[in-house]
Amino acid sequence: MSGITYVRGDATVPSVKGVKVIAHVCNDIGGWGRGFVLALSRRWPEPEAAYRAWHRERASNDFGLGALQLVQVKPDVWVANMIGQRGVLPPARVRSRRGKMGSAGVPVRYEAIDTALSRLADPVIELAASVHMPRIGCGLAGGKWSRVEPLVTERLVRRGVAVTVYDHGEGRS
């Protein structure tokens, strides 16, 4: 069985062979413009465009907490937009959130991340892909990796999916 590998680097440039899925957490209000999504948008326009269209047309699709959208950006690279946070923190609260707010005060929704990861497993297995991610739900969503890591393990690793988690400089935990 595969496990979680932790590396220092940029999750948008996985350096392994084969098909890769870059997974990250999005909010449920259509906001795209802070955090890891900026790195995605610098590399490829498709994930942001797909997310914005998905949100815009939400009355007729599955957009909402726990939903998953897979966007192909290269023949061997996909981006998984996973809705795992309710709203966003105002900028002033982003600076003060670490250690100063309880989980009720942050946008992360662990049950939504769990649902999205569960939905991600089958397509990843069908693609024979590995999954690459920052510490999802733990940046601007304000979550704790000690709560997210077991979800990644249960939904992906236990199904044989190789997962790499990238730590990229200051500001991400």
Rank of each mutant, 00 (worst) to 15 (best):
G33M: 10
G33K: 08
R34L: 15
V37P: 00
L38F: 00
L38M: 13
L38G: 00
A39F: 05
A39W: 00
S41K: 06
R42N: 11
R42S: 11
W44L: 01
W44G: 02
P45W: 05
P45D: 14
E46C: 10
P47L: 12
E48Q: 14
E48F: 01
A50C: 08
A50Y: 09
Y51D: 10
W54F: 15
H55Q: 13
H55M: 11
R56N: 00
E57H: 13
A59Q: 08
S60L: 10
N61S: 03
N61V: 01
N61W: 04
F63H: 13
F63E: 09
G66H: 08
G66S: 10
L68H: 07
Q69P: 03
Q69C: 10
Q69M: 14
L70Q: 04
V71T: 14
V71Q: 02
V71W: 07
Q72P: 09
Q72T: 11
V73E: 04
V73L: 04
K74L: 14
K74H: 01
D76S: 13
V77K: 06
V77A: 07
W78H: 10
W78F: 12
V79E: 05
V79C: 11
V79D: 11
A80S: 06
A80M: 06
A80N: 09
N81P: 05
N81T: 07
M82R: 08
I83T: 09
G84M: 02
G84T: 03
Q85H: 03
R86T: 02
R86M: 03
R86S: 09
G87V: 04
V88K: 05
V88C: 11
L89A: 10
L89M: 09
P91R: 12
A92H: 12
R93V: 11
R93D: 15
V94T: 12
V94D: 05
V94I: 14
V94C: 10
R95N: 01
R95T: 03
S96T: 12
R97D: 04
G99V: 01
